[in-house]
């Protein structure tokens, strides 16, 4: 992504002048390195907006916090985030008429961990292009960094680089061609016992903080089954089996509805490869029911429909 900060601020100013309640975007975190979600409501807030290759947060789910407003809400959407908005609209959780999408074409995001290793002193802007990253720090523009050295892993499997049907802040960018997810293939190729111990090893680190659920644009139930205590489906008890059930249930709940934005991987504090569960389901649904991966707006979710001639593999 180019540094789109200036056009974003202009756009935000115009929206707020037009009585928008808020513009949801990003601001530089105090560490001078990462970005963080930011809600611009006045000129001071607009002045803090940034939009560059550090702004990897998918903001769409914050729209749930604005359910009953009369005024519109502006929101910055990359290609992947636009699918998330469509997900929330399809689930009837967001009224699209209230949303003004601000489209940000994106050639890939920088990994904050890799960025920190290379620029511990902080950055002022990070731009990405098909060839690599251009980082600007307080000391000025740095020599170009190769794409592979900084790219956020999930951006290697980009499904949509430019949000469709929105007013764009910059020229459209084409998404790279995506092959099947390497991690899913790797795990699938393991012998069954190793697959079990791989996942059990991963799940044993889970602290059940539910960050993956809370950030997920496909997880928007008003009350989650894991928060219900009558009946107490899972409760707060932790243990390997409970955690397995939690993650497999959640993966299944978003099966075919997942927009593969990769936010679950990003927020997990203990580094679980959660998207490897979701991608597996997307691939299987695609293969079994001949559907696009991930879910695309205007199509029925694979588990919300059927065909008379669906395969019967084991029945």
């Amino acid at each position: 992504m180019k540094d789109n900060t200036a056009p974003l601020r202009d756009k935000a100013r115009a929206l707020l002048a037009d009585k928008a309640a808020c513009v949801i975007g990003h601001a530089r975190d105090r560490d001078g390195l990462r970005a963080r979600p930011h809600f611009a409501k006045d000129e001071r807030g607009v002045g803090a907006l940034i939009l560059d290759a550090t702004c990897h947060h998918n903001l769409a789910k914050y729209l749930l916090d604005y359910p009953y407003l009369e005024a519109k809400v502006g929101i910055v959407l990359k290609g992947c985030d636009a699918l998330a908005l469509e997900r929330l609209v399809a689930d009837r959780r967001v009224d699209r008429a209230k949303v003004v999408p601000i489209g940000a074409p994106c050639a890939g995001m920088a990994d904050p961990v890799k960025l920190q290793a290379l620029f511990p002193g902080g950055v002022t802007a990070v731009a990405s292009g098909p060839d690599g990253f251009t980082v600007t720090t307080a000391a000025g523009r740095q020599p170009p960094a190769p794409r592979a050295g900084l790219l956020l892993e999930r951006c290697q499997a980009c499904h949509q680089a430019t949000p469709p049907d929105t007013e764009l802040l910059a020229e459209p960018v084409a998404a790279p061609t995506v092959g099947p997810a390497a991690e899913v293939a790797r795990i699938s190729a393991l012998p069954p016992a190793d697959r079990l111990s791989f996942w059990q090893g991963q799940f044993s680190r889970c602290i059940r903080c539910y960050a993956c659920r809370n950030v997920c644009p496909a997880c928007s139930c008003r009350e989650c089954v894991f928060d219900q205590f009558q009946p107490n489906w899972l409760g707060r008890r932790t243990g390997l089996a409970q955690t397995q059930v939690f993650h497999l249930t959640r993966a299944f709940h978003v099966a075919g509805r997942c927009v593969d934005c990769g936010e679950c991987d990003r927020v997990c504090p203990v580094g679980l490869p959660l998207s490897a569960l979701n991608r597996k389901l997307l691939q299987d649904a695609g293969e079994l029911f001949k559907l696009a991966e991930p879910w695309r707006p205007g199509t029925t979710e694979p588990l919300g429909t059927y065909k008379l001639d669906d395969p019967e593999e084991f029945m």
């Binding site: 795990i187 699938s188 069954p192 016992a193 697959r195 079990l196 111990s197 791989f198 996942w199 059990q200 397995q244 497999l248 993966a251 299944f252 099966a255 075919g256 569960l277 597996k280 389901l281 299987d284 649904a285 079994l288 029911f289 694979p302 588990l303 429909t305 059927y306 669906d310 395969p311 019967e312 593999e313 084991f314 029945m315």
Partner: peptide
């Protein structure tokens, strides 16, 4: 049928 076609594969994938 759709649901458990997927489920069977997910269970296998999870070991």
């Amino acid at each position: 049928r759709r649901r458990y076609l997927l489920m069977q594969r997910l269970l296998e994938y999870a070991g």
